[in-house]
């Protein structure tokens, strides 16, 4: 067919031409490196060089050494707790902005919520150290109020401080997807529910919450996946018992120069996160499938 020229073919070509530069960039600097990381995780670490010999040793080390296993499990636990805390705390905020704020002011509220996220992460984490420390703001405040007589020591350099700091850092990631899902809810559905005899609270449970689930699921994943790989927070406020897998990876790469083991740890962490995320998606799929 000689005249097919300017139809779908040109459309496809235009799209491919445009997407080529960012796609090639991502292939070369993201996909290829990730593949290489995978390859490295099966190589043997020699002294000062990496031997091109296939081995499972890195993985068996990463999965059986109690130190690594402990850190991995702790990372998962911390991420799960952070995710739960962040999403639960974020939901009412998203609900407030979506349902109780004048439409013209919604974007101002969202802007206020997102500002802290865009400011230096490092400095924010450091300030949590200041807030939670032995002589910190929290202890000083509580002592002044007479609630405690001597500084609390369980605030900093442990899992608690890591959880608080991460829940702070990832707040907007949880609020925004939930907000978007809530915004999509046709308000007349709630009126219909009340018209059919349900109270406001039951309407919330039977209509709003199920319809907001896609946002909640997105929020869970978008908080859970990156937190497990967070480096700065455990490093600065975690103390020895708050270390997470990213600190371990950094240690293997920059201090011990054991790239294969570092790669195996990184791949293992990503693999576990991917599997958990998929299981979570499967479990919640009936909520996500809902109306478009």
């Amino acid at each position: 067919m000689a005249r097919r020229a300017k139809g779908a073919g040109a459309e496809t070509a235009g799209g491919l031409l445009l997407i080529a530069p960012p796609a090639i960039y991502a292939l070369l600097l993201l996909a290829a490196p990730l593949l290489l990381l995978l390859t490295y995780s099966f190589l043997t670490d020699g002294y000062l060089e990496i031997l091109r010999e296939f081995t499972w040793a890195n993985y068996s080390e990463a999965w059986t050494n109690p130190l690594y296993r402990g850190v991995m499990l702790r990372s998962l636990g911390v991420s799960a707790l952070v995710t739960a805390a962040t999403v639960l705390l974020a939901f009412p905020v998203a609900y407030f902005v979506s349902f109780h704020v004048d439409p013209a002011r919604k974007s101002t509220w969202l802007f206020l919520i997102t500002i802290p996220f865009w400011t230096s992460y490092l400095i924010r984490v450091f300030l949590w150290k200041v807030i939670l420390g032995y002589n910190g703001v929290m202890n000083a405040g509580l002592m002044k109020l007479g609630i405690i007589t001597e500084p609390l020591t369980f605030l900093l350099y442990n899992v608690n401080s890591v959880i608080i700091t991460l829940a702070h850092a990832y707040a907007p990631f949880a609020i925004l997807p939930i907000f978007v899902a809530l915004e999509k809810i046709d308000r007349s559905l709630l009126e219909a529910s009340q018209d059919l005899g349900e109270s406001k609270i039951v309407s919330f449970l039977r209509v709003t919450l199920p319809l907001a689930m896609p946002g909640v699921v997105a929020a869970v994943l978008i908080v859970f996946i990156p937190t497990i790989g967070d480096y700065v927070t455990p490093q600065l406020v975690g103390g020895p018992e708050g270390r997470m897998v990213a600190n371990l990876i950094q240690l293997q790469y920059l201090r011990l120069d054991n790239y294969p083991l570092g790669s195996a740890l990184a791949i293992s962490a990503m693999g576990i996160v991917a599997v958990i995320s998929l299981i979570f998606l499967l479990l919640t799929r009936r909520y996500i499938r809902g109306p478009k």
Binding site: M1, K6, G7
Partner: peptide, 8 residues
Amino acid sequence: GFEGISEG
């Protein structure tokens, strides 16, 4: 001219 034709 926004759509090409396949034949004709």
